[in-house]
């Protein structure tokens, strides 16, 4: 990975932030906004492991916090933690299986939203009736993110492979 490559990834994160706060927030089917940043962080963790998963979780999550009207730092925290733990399985998985990001994203979104509600409620930021929230937002959103993820994941995986083939440090991905 060269410095330029990190620049490309930063641009990608910025693009996700812009899309998520404009296009996707306006044309949201079923009133749901997919979490591109979470998809990015989870994909990175699966492809590159814990360290980069956590690092990108922190920075991309912070970016999302900064453009959101909500409680600052929650996305940053949750996405970093998720990036770290999902990254732990990086060496044990077969990366070409596109079912992998689908399943992981579904579970990750579920955990992310539940923890988000828990934290937001404990800081008196949100007060939600749990079951309706689960059925109208959390589960559909998990499904939505999961279905979007393989495209994103596959693209990111082939991009990283291109990097490591040409003059990268050649990590086995």
């Amino acid at each position: 990975m060269k410095r330029l490559d990190y620049g490309v990834l930063v641009l990608l994160v910025l693009l996700c932030l812009i899309l998520q706060s404009t296009l996707l927030a306006t044309f949201s089917p079923w009133g749901l906004i997919p979490d591109l940043i979470l998809i990015y962080v989870v994909s990175t963790a699966l492809i590159r492991g814990s360290n980069e998963g956590a690092l990108w979780g922190f920075f991309a999550g912070l970016g999302l916090d900064l453009i959101s009207s909500g409680f600052l730092g929650l996305h940053c925290l949750l996405k970093m933690v998720l990036g770290f733990f999902i990254g732990l399985v990086e060496e044990k998985i077969f990366k070409d299986n596109l079912l992998l990001p689908v399943l992981v994203l579904f579970a990750a979104t579920l955990v992310h939203e539940l923890l988000f509600l828990l934290f937001a409620a404990s800081y008196k930021q949100l007060e939600v009736r749990f079951l309706p929230a689960l059925s109208t937002i959390i589960l559909p959103l998990s499904l939505y993110n999961a279905l979007l993820s393989p495209f994103f994941y596959a693209k990111l995986l082939s991009w990283y492979r291109g990097r490591s083939r040409y003059g990268g440090e050649g990590r086995g991905i």
Binding site: S21, T22, A25, S68
Partner: peptide
């Protein structure tokens, strides 16, 4: 811009 999270409702 609009709020990017599903739990809040805000615009910029």
């Amino acid at each position: 811009a609009r709020e990017p999270s599903n739990w809040y409702n805000a615009i910029t």
